[in-house]
Design a protein around this nucleic acid. Sequence first.
DNA 1: AAGCTATTTAGATAATTATCTAAATAGATA
DNA 2: TATCTATTTAGATAATTATCTAAATAGCTT
Lengths: 91, 91
Amino acid sequence: MSIEITFKALSDPVRRDIIHYLKEGRMSAGDIASKFDVAFATISYHLTILKKSSLIRETKVKNFVYYELNLSVFEDLLLWFSDFTGGESDE
Amino acid sequence: MSIEITFKALSDPVRRDIIHYLKEGRMSAGDIASKFDVAFATISYHLTILKKSSLIRETKVKNFVYYELNLSVFEDLLLWFSDFTGGESDE
DNA sequence: AAGCTATTTAGATAATTATCTAAATAGATA
DNA sequence: TATCTATTTAGATAATTATCTAAATAGCTT
């Protein structure tokens, strides 16, 4: 996981909304897209970025593509932050 | 604190490097800038963005401007992430 | 006041990113 | 096979962002 790619992925409101929806469980690309007022292809673009960041992963079933959160990356991020709040100032 | 502004602030590598330096303690704008190979004014721009996100705060002493981390915002972010990972209170 | 020192602001430009429409791909079904 | 459904890719464009140089601000020191 690259923190660069991950933070870039999280820096867009549409992408944060997507991961919020995925908190409730896996969804198909189409179902995700239908929640937004932007073009289908735009959501596909955002899903690709989220996938590259490993924040989500895909599963193909029939001709659907389902997406779900990859929680282990969120835990890595928690760790990144706790480095600041934790108190150890040792490199 | 707006999560939008905060994530945007964290999405740039120079800004993440700045907060990394500030982990060691407060520093003047000039000392921060001297760590980077970009123009002074560029670092000033980044400091403004970090300040707007409340990730850092400034203190003016003489004609220096010192910056330091604002840890409470990091804790808010920790909370934002733990919402995904299941929370720390429920095991 | 004049001249430093530290930092920010302005204005311009290059690079990156988000968005759109249209076309392409891939699997499912008649 | 032809066609439908779901999704992605391509190409274009608009919006945003990071960067630079030059000028401005503000506080110190003599």
